[in-house]
Design a protein around this nucleic acid. Structure first.
Lengths: 342, 342
DNA sequence: AACATTTAGTGTATCGGTTTCCAACAAGAC
DNA sequence: GTCTTGTTGGAAACCGATACACTAAATGTT
C-alpha cells in the first residue's frame, strides 16, 4: 500500500497525491483533490514516515534523554513534553542515560542516526565536549533541569539558587540555627551546585558565616543512603533542621530520623526539594519546594520545536520559578505565605 | 556523509561497505575490511537509520503506549522496558493515550506510519475492535498490565485477582469484618474487574456473603476524589478496613481518613495496591501489594522482541506474582509472613 | 591443460516518498 | 492568428541504505 497505489486508483500521478497529502493545493482542482482523497480513504492509505523523512530530511520526531528515569519527578516533566509534542505534530523517542556519560554519548549517536529533528536532554554534566560540539554545529538541543555552561546553549531550568534560598531562609526565619544541607556528592551537576549556593546565601544573609555550613554528602549510587544519613546525623548531633535537596534523599532522611527517634519538627525541622503527590501525606506533612515539572517539559518541547522551525534563535535561558509549600515538617504555621528572598 | 563516501574512500563498492557494517564478513578479506573500517572511522560515518529501515523493512524501534503517564508507577515499568530494549538493540518511542480511546487509535496509527517494529500497550480497554484487528493481522503487540480478552493476544500482567485476594484475606485474618474496596468506576479495564473479583473471592472464602461487599466507586477523572471518599466513608460509617486499588486512590483515602480524624489502623485498617517508594514513610507506614513493575516492563519488551525475531509465537499470557508487604496500616504485625490464598 | 567450484567483490534495482523541471492546454493581449 | 501568461498535471531524479544477480580471479579436480 503505497502512494503509487493511491495514484493508480485515482488516475493521477504520484506527484499529485503527494501534493494533496501535504496540503499543497496549488496545482490541483477540487475534483482531482476529491478523487484522490476518496482513493486514500478507500485504501486506508498510511504514508510511510521513513520514506518521507528520508527524502525531506525531517522526521517530526524529537528525542528526550533523561538521566534517571526511575525518579518519579520525571513522570510529570515527560507528560508536559509529550503533550506539547503531540499538539505540535511530533512524536517522542525516549532514553535513559542513568547518569552514565558513555551511555549518554551512545544514545546521542543513536538519536542522530535516526535523524531525530532535535533533542531535549537532562545532561549527566560529564560530557562538556559533547555538549559544546553539538551546540557548535547548531544541532537543535534543549537542556532541561540542569544548566549547561555555554553561552549559546538553550536551557530550561528552575531557579535552584532561589529554591534553596527560600527553603533555608524559611527555616531560619522560624528560629532554626543549625541548618544542614543533605545532597549528593557530585561535582558535575549544576542543580547541586546551585542548591548549595542558595543554602549558603541564605545562611550568610541571615548573619551566619561560612563556618556555619553543615554539608551532609551522600553517594548517589549507593544503596546505603539511609545508613550514611544516620552516620552523618550522629556526627552532627546538634543540628535542628535539614534542607534535603531532592525527593529521593528526603525519603531517606525521613527514614533515618524515624530510626533515630528524632521528632519532626520538634527536634529537627525538614524542608525537601521537589513537591510530590505524596508529600502532604507523610508524617508529618512535608514542607517542600515545588518545581513546575509539567511546565518545564512544556517549555522545553516548545522551545525546541520553535528552534526547529527557525522561529527562535539557538540561545535561550528559560528560568522557571520554584515555590515554597509550607506544611508541618518545617515547624512553621501551614498556610503561611510564601517567603521571598530579600 | 553517506555509505557512498565511505565506499569511495576505501575504494570498494557500497555493497561491500554495507556488508561490513552489518557484520556480514562472508565476502570480504581482512584487508578490505580494515580499509573500510578505517574509512568509517576517519569520516566519522553514521549510517542513516531511515534509509536502512526503508529498505530493510525493520527499524529496530518499538513503541510504548501508556494510558496515564502521570502515575509514577509507570516510571519503573518504563525503566524495565527501556533497559531491555537498549540491551537488545532497540530504541523506544513513547506516547500517552491518557485513557482516551481516540488518542489511542491516533497514536497507534502514528506508530504504524513510522514503521515501528512492534508496540507495547497498556490499553484503555475501550477499543476492542482495534485490538482484535491488530491481533488478527498479526501485528506485533504486547498488552501490558491490563489484559485483552482475545485468545491470540500476548499479555504481560500481574495476577490481580490474587493480589486483591491476599490483601483482603490479610485484613480478614487480622479480624476486620467490614472491609470496603475503593476503586474507579470503569467498566473497560481488566485490572479493576479482577481486583474486585479478588476482593469478592476473599470475602466469600472467609464465610462472608455477597451482601457483605462494600464497594466505594470513584470517578477517575474527577478532581474531587477525596471529597467523594469522605462522602462514602460517612455513608458507610461502620467499615473497619479499606482495600484501596491503586496508589493514587490510596493517597486520597489517607487524606480523607485524616480529615475525618479516623485512626489508622485503630479504627480503620488500610491496604493499598501498588508498592511505592513512599509507602513505608507514610503515617502509619502503609501495607501494600507490590507489583513487579520493572520486571513487567522487562518481560513485555523481551516478549515483544522475541516475537519480532519469530522465536516466540504470538499468543502468550505472562502472569507475574504480586506480593503482600506488611507494614503498620493494616493493623497486623510488621514482618509477618506473606499470606497465600487457600 | 581443461573444466568445475569457490571466493571476493561489483552494478543496479529497489524501498516509498518529495521535488525539480517540463508539457499541455486555456485564456488574454495585441 | 500568434505570443504571452497562468493553470493543472506528470516524468524522472533523488534521499541513503540493502540485496539480488552477476563477474573475475583463484583454487581444486582429473
Amino acid at each position: 500500500m503505497t502512494i503509487a497505489d493511491v495514484a493508480n486508483r485515482a488516475n493521477v500521478s504520484k506527484t499529485t497525491v503527494s501534493r494533496i497529502l501535504n496540503g499543497n493545493y496549488a496545482h490541483t482542482t477540487e475534483q482531482t483533490r476529491d478523487r484522490v482523497l476518496q482513493a486514500i480513504k478507500e485504501l486506508d492509505y498510511r504514508p510511510n514516515a521513513l520514506a518521507k523523512g528520508l527524502k525531506s530530511m525531517k522526521t517530526n520526531v524529537v528525542g528526550i534523554m533523561l538521566s534517571n528515569l526511575k525518579n518519579p519527578f520525571w513522570s510529570t516533566v515527560l507528560e508536559g513534553v509529550e503533550d506539547t509534542c503531540h499538539d505540535l505534530g511530533y512524536n517522542l523517542m525516549i532514553c535513559n542515560s542513568d547518569e552514565d556519560e558513555q551511555l549518554e554519548e551512545e544514545y546521542m549517536r543513536e538519536f542522530r542516526m535516526r535523524q531525530v529533528d532535535g533533542v531535549i536532554i537532562n545532561p549527566t554534566g560529564k560530557n562538556s565536549p559533547l555538549y559544546d560540539s553539538l551546540i557548535m554545529e547548531q544541532y537543535p538541543i534543549v537542556f532541561i533541569n540542569r544548566r549547561v555552561q555555554n553561552e549559546n546553549a538553550s536551557n530550561v531550568i528552575v531557579d535552584n539558587v532561589k529554591g534553596a534560598y527560600i527553603a533555608v531562609n524559611h527555616l531560619l526565619r522560624y528560629g532554626r540555627r543549625k541548618v544542614a544541607i543533605c545532597m549528593y556528592r557530585n561535582a558535575y551537576v549544576s542543580t547541586w551546585k546551585e542548591r548549595l549556593e542558595g543554602y549558603k546565601q541564605a545562611l550568610l544573609a541571615n548573619g551566619f558565616s561560612e563556618s556555619d555550613l553543615i554539608i551532609m554528602e551522600l553517594e548517589e549510587k549507593a544503596d546505603t543512603k539511609k545508613e550514611s544519613i544516620i552516620r552523618l546525623l550522629k556526627k552532627h548531633a546538634d543540628i535542628d533542621a535539614i534542607f534535603s535537596t531532592n525527593n529521593m534523599i528526603t525519603l531517606e532522611v525521613i527514614g533515618a530520623l524515624r530510626e533515630l527517634n528524632l521528632q519532626v519538627p520538634a527536634q529537627i525541622a525538614v524542608v525537601g526539594y521537589d513537591e510530590t503527590v505524596w508529600a502532604k501525606y507523610l508524617d508529618p506533612p512535608l514542607t517542600t519546594i515545588r518545581q513546575p515539572g509539567y511546565q518545564m517539559g512544556q517549555r522545553a518541547a516548545h522551545n525546541l520545536i520553535e528552534m526547529l522551525s527557525g522561529k527562535q534563535r539557538q540561545q535561550a535561558m528559560d528560568m522557571l520559578e520554584p515555590e515554597l509549600i509550607v506544611r508541618a515538617s518545617c515547624g512553621a504555621i501551614p498556610g503561611d505565605t510564601v517567603l521571598q528572598p530579600n
